[in-house]
Write a protein that binds this DNA or RNA. Structure first.
Lengths: 352, 352
DNA sequence: ATTGGCACTCTGATTTGGGAAGTGCTAAAA
DNA sequence: TTTTAGCACTTCCCAAATCAGAGTGCCAAT
């Protein structure tokens, strides 16, 4: 996906100028404006020639014959890969983001607050997923007898994440059997990476001899654990209205498909999945970027996504990201996203 | 809020015709069209005279001098109170709604699924709040010792609702003390209705003699219980994109304020609160309706809300509703909402 | 290699001139 | 007294016409 072009320094400077101005003003850029605003010691005619070549290379576009130039998706890609520098968040922004640490101390509350902060700081749509309870590396299952029909279940993950909950069963279970089953499941875990695998293996493969007679109970336990995890995997999304302020989404034909897409949680999940196949932004710690046509979902052809995982005890646990028009301020968004994500990681790691 | 007018049967018939047609077609109605479509044995001129009077009464509006008539908010109100009959959902609709019962068995999953069904069935925005854990009538707190720093907490509500969770404390606590504090809190509950009251009382009033020395622990327990409840009170909202299909929200000036409003969870909460102060729709079991200007939030001046509580063991526990343009099909929405709500009540009551 | 000059293109805002739809009013009819 | 036909009038909406502005591409001169 990454683009390699041999561009003269001058072409780079011009491309850079066009993209920066377009991001700022949202209007096609003409040769004269470029010269004036960036103090090139060249005439507009020269710029025009250069821009014509940049267009031939597919980095710029002309909305129509007599309009100025606009960056193409490839142009943005080149910009993100080679031209944009690192943005340094202002003191105010840092203070604003840091409000996260002071607030609530539950994973859900942190993510909910984080998306809110992220959306406001970037004036874009912010999205986050809770830790992938079914996919993350699970280390241990721990059960504690409560009454014949209920257990206290503790899930202990490699990244230190722990979930405790009460597990209700329709079969009664005795303390001795519980130990047996607990041992069995934890043995299974040694060759299994995640709840997902444990669940599918239990459902599809025959059980070992020793627990054969408790088949129904094992099934119910695993299914119930899996269902609980699934329920607790949520998506947080906020800031859709910021999208509607952008000039490119003023008409409903443009805005509708996107809002409709975002209204469907499973699409948003897929989005996070595809994000990790995006191109990593240079100089960042796992910040990924998908620009316009790089999005597999057609509805998002005019959007870009910047996303990054947050870490619990240095293990990637879930993702958080920003969705905006392709004409977004990539540099700023990247920096703010990174800051927010590392704040999440920090705050969450403190929980354990 | 309810309107009492002395209207001749003929005026009612005309008003009825105008509103029904406007709901269906979304365009101002002229006298000629009314006569044709509804087979009145009157000339357009007569209809015109009648409509002029209905306009004087504030029930109809004219967008401009030579346009047809459109219902005013008062017109809709009169329609909802006196004219619209009960809608009987079709077999397909009932089957569609009934899918709710088959799916998951956790409160959150039920509400999430219910909003989805409701939004699709009404082609409008659907919203739901989880049971009001802080406000509902709390009957008993039950603690079970787990380890020095954690307890299993059971909240038992009057409506049969039970929440179990693990409560982590920073103070260690011993079994004996736990009994004492548990007794104390449950005694408090006898003169207290809700978690909300319990929390505020604990924070503001001095503690009784007996538990004075455990002040810090009591504080932490109550705060943590309260915080957990707060976190578990969620709002589900889906179907915003349907709103954007309505002709009245084609332009961003119209749509933006509403979407921006809905993006803020606390506003949606307020919305539910104001809903219960709306007018109850005749012939329904607690279905409330707010039309256009009756909404206290300015952003919703062109929207109507129909909302109803769902019941767990016959106790109202939270609300679910539909938001649409004032030009919504009130009769249909009311019927479907009612069906969905009673399905929720049924499904939830089965959980306990 | 760069630039000034110029003809050309396309957009977007504004104006103009009909229909079309629908009203209110008046006077006649029932 | 109520209803209706007739007619003048209002307003919107659409399409066509016009025009200024912005920007281009290309050519010939520097």
């Amino acid at each position: 996906m990454r683009l390699e072009y041999r561009l003269s320094e001058r072409k780079k400077a011009i491309l850079n100028a066009v993209i920066r101005d377009y991001i700022t003003y949202g209007e096609p850029l003409g040769s004269r404006t470029i010269v004036q605003r960036h103090g090139f010691t060249l005439s507009p005619a020269t710029i025009r020639n250069e821009m014509a070549e940049l267009e031939e290379a597919g980095l710029l576009l002309q909305p129509h014959t007599s309009a100025g130039r606009v960056p193409s998706d490839k142009g943005y890609r080149f910009f993100v890969d080679h031209l944009m520098g690192a943005y340094v968040p202002s003191q105010e922004e840092l203070i604003f983001i840091r409000r996260l640490e002071q607030t609530s101390r539950a994973i859900d509350a942190i993510l909910s607050q984080a998306t809110r902060i992220l959306a406001e700081a970037t004036q874009s749509v912010a999205l986050a997923e809770t830790p992938r309870l079914r996919r993350n590396h699970l280390q241990e299952l721990h059960f504690q007898y409560l009454d014949p029909f209920s257990l206290v279940l503790s899930l202990i993950y490699r990244n230190g994440l722990r979930r405790q909950s009460v597990l209700k069963l329709s079969h009664s279970i005795y303390d001795g059997v519980l130990d047996l089953l607990s041992n069995y499941l934890n043995t299974q875990l040694r060759t299994t990476n995640s709840l997902d695998e444990l669940f599918h293996r239990t459902v599809t493969l025959p059980l070992e001899q020793e627990v054969q007679k408790y088949r129904a109970i094992v099934m119910e336990m695993v299914s119930e654990i899996y269902a609980q995890a699934q329920r607790d995997e949520r998506v947080y999304l906020t800031g859709t209205s910021y999208l509607l302020r952008e000039p490119e989404f003023q008409s409903m034909e443009q805005a509708y498909p996107i809002l409709s897409f975002l209204d469907q949680e499973h699409f948003v999940r897929q989005l996070f999945h595809s994000a990790s196949h995006g191109v990593q932004i240079e100089g960042t710690h796992h910040v990924y970027c998908l620009i316009g046509y790089e999005n597999t979902h057609e509805e998002l052809q005019h959007c870009s996504l910047v996303a990054t995982p947050y870490f619990i005890e240095d293990k990637a646990s879930g993702m958080i990201g920003v969705l905006g028009p392709t004409r977004m301020d990539y540099s700023k968004v990247t920096a703010i996203l990174q800051t927010v994500a590392s704040n999440i990681s920090l705050t969450m790691s403190k929980l354990f």
